[in-house]
Design a protein around this nucleic acid. Structure first.
Lengths: 223, 223
DNA sequence: AGCGTAAGCTTACGGTGTATGTGTGTCAAG
DNA sequence: CTTGACACACATACACCGTAAGCTTACGCT
């Protein structure tokens, strides 16, 4: 009897919201967001689907919670840095986070209200920009432009069929081989160049980022 | 008998892939992409769900087809314009398309292979950039940066809870009222500024776009 | 010891995409 | 004119989804 009770206690650690969300993230990381169902989530936690509803109000709540955890992984800029360095670091961190959890971006898109981690994130970005000498509307503009770039390049990177460089050139080769080159000369040319000098996405991303940061600085100086 | 045949002919125009995709787009425009199911799509066309599979290989094919139609709505730059004007026009057209069909962006994200309209689109962009004096790698970079910005800002615009300006300031007011201002001073400040001078998204978008175009031009000139 | 409550389980409903098999209207060849 | 083939719509069925409603169990507190 006492033994039985202990069994249960061991097998069934109390299960709270945090554990549910973590498990959900693991599932999504492993199999994409479409692999996440309440039943599967329950199964992973050794529990029936409906039991989850004791800790989470519905699936949307799960998604929101997952997203907020992921957003919390984005490094918040240190105030000791210049705005440029701070924004650069933030963008790099964002890219790496969205790379680790590709499903998070799609979630962000569908979300309505911010969530605490996102609020903290926004607050810190505004702080850095304002302290870097941006007026309020300019800070808004800079934030918008930088985030747009970061989101958009994450989309594009995600859509790339390639994780490894070898796989990338393989895919490019395949693409090129079935491309009617006379109809798409420029596309063929571009694909060919990728083949000869394989594209490093990190590099590409940083180049664009630096271009943007410079442009923002110029904009700020010119008031 | 002849009458009956005519009835059928009227009621049941033969139903082809094109009609299926158009109906799907209508459903998605009206109720969002999650409102689109094969059964509902069939119902709209006066047909059972399974009949659709005579014209379309599966739901993914439907989504792909819808996306390609939408991508086809993006204006392809005229070659008479300068690369800057052409890219500017393209970005504006893209924004308007993604505004009209907000679900398309999410679809684009999940898509693997290009589709003919997207290929034509890419070809024309590369053409404009190459003819504008960009080297192959630079054209790739410029394309990447511009598209990233366009995608990302569409995401952000979609996430805005506001369609009309009055609704926007209403939402901002609500947000501001429940924001712990001492904890988020910069956020409060930014929100306040939106309240006093309501933000025009088109304007914001174009400012960022012009910033980017200038930066790209400078980059190209500096080789 | 007894009870309230938290947190698990079971069942059920209406929805989803689609595999499979069954008509049936149209049209061409005999 | 008949017949047979074929395109295409339909019906049924399966496995899965989110979650509402109700039931059961077991721990903590008085």
């Amino acid at each position: 009897m006492a033994e039985k009770r202990r069994d249960k206690a061991v097998k069934r650690r109390p299960l709270d919201r945090e554990r549910v969300l973590r498990a959900a993230i693991e599932i999504a990381d492993a199999g994409g967001i479409e692999a996440l169902s309440m039943r599967r989530l329950g199964r992973r936690l050794g529990v029936e689907a409906m039991s989850l509803y004791n800790h989470v109000s519905n699936k949307d709540d799960v998604l929101g919670g997952m997203l907020d955890i992921i957003v919390g992984e984005i490094e918040i800029p240190q105030s000791s840095l210049s705005w440029k360095e701070a924004m650069r670091g933030r963008a790099l961190s964002m890219r790496s986070v969205f790379n680790r959890h590709p499903w998070a971006l799609g979630l962000l898109e569908a979300r309505r209200s911010p969530g605490p981690a996102l609020m903290r994130y926004m607050e810190s970005v505004f702080g850095v920009l304002r302290q870097g000498g941006f007026s309020i509307p300019m800070a808004r503009g800079a934030f918008f432009v930088l985030d747009s770039y970061a989101y958009g390049s994450s989309i594009q990177e995600k859509n790339l069929p390639s994780s490894s460089p070898t796989e990338a050139s393989e895919a490019t080769e395949h693409f090129l081989s079935r491309l009617p080159q006379s109809e798409y000369p420029y596309l063929a040319e571009a694909a060919g160049s990728i083949l000869s000098s394989p594209l490093d996405f990190a590099e590409e991303f940083e180049r664009g980022l630096d271009l943007l940061l410079e442009a923002l600085e110029a904009w700020r100086s010119r008031e």
